[in-house]
């Protein structure tokens, strides 16, 4: 997993609340056998509407999604996170996240930054006024910022210390466990000889 310290990218406003994982990626897209390629199912139902924000040229390079409260509720599918990442999103900013989605994001390296309702509204207004506006996320300082002058939006976001540390270090669960490899080696040496192996 790549480490995450700061990111600046085009923001995309998703003016909806309660975006559940079925809306992020419908079940029919889950039949794939890889961890890549899920971007084609991202928000599939909404994308058939040409006016949907993801279809606007201004947002073609978007990497920071700004959504309403309760983003990522519903089924536990990790594919929802993969779909966002495969599409190119690095950060989701929202006032509240579904618990499992937040956990899955942390595991996969997608930053879920929790901010106030007011901040989300301000970011939405900013992006609507000027589509293509970039948003900066600083995980070291825990801040999100965009715009300049009187329109500047700047706020701190919430993220738990453990998740922040993992993202900063670029550690997934497996990397963390592999860092304890010596413990695993030592444990394996104590396993009794009668324990079975699957090969013949």
């Amino acid at each position: 997993m790549d480490s995450f310290t700061r990111h600046t990218g085009v923001g995309m406003p998703l003016r909806r609340s309660n975006v559940d994982t079925d809306q992020i990626i419908p079940a029919v897209y889950l039949k794939r056998v890889t961890r890549t390629g899920f971007e084609d199912g991202l928000f599939a139902a909404w994308r058939t509407d040409p006016s949907f924000v993801l279809n606007q040229p201004a947002y073609a390079q978007a990497s920071v999604l700004v959504a309403g409260p309760d983003f990522g509720t519903g089924s536990s599918r990790e594919h929802a996170v993969w779909a966002l990442q495969n599409y190119g999103f690095k950060v989701v900013v929202a006032p509240r996240f579904g618990d499992i989605f937040r956990g899955n994001s942390a595991k996969a390296g997608l930053l879920a930054a929790q901010v106030d309702d007011k901040t989300v509204s301000a970011l939405w207004d900013l992006m609507d006024a000027e589509p293509g506006t970039e948003i900066s996320i600083d995980l070291v300082e825990r801040t999100v910022s965009a715009g300049s002058g009187v329109d500047r939006v700047e706020d701190s976001f919430d993220i738990d210390d453990y998740t922040r540390w993992r993202l900063l270090e670029g550690l997934d669960d497996i990397a963390i466990t592999l860092s304890h490899g010596a413990d695993v080696d030592a444990f394996e040496r104590t396993r009794p000889s009668y324990m079975p192996i699957t090969t013949v």
């Binding site: 056998v33 890889t34 961890r35 890549t36 990790e78 497996i174 304890h180 695993v184 394996e188 079975p196």
Partner: peptide, 26 residues
Amino acid sequence: LLYIDLHLVHEVTSPQAFDGLRLAGR
């Protein structure tokens, strides 16, 4: 951190796991 003595695998829940290993070169 719990050691696993036996890991059983079938076709439905394993493909992305193997793909993840492949992506990370593990």
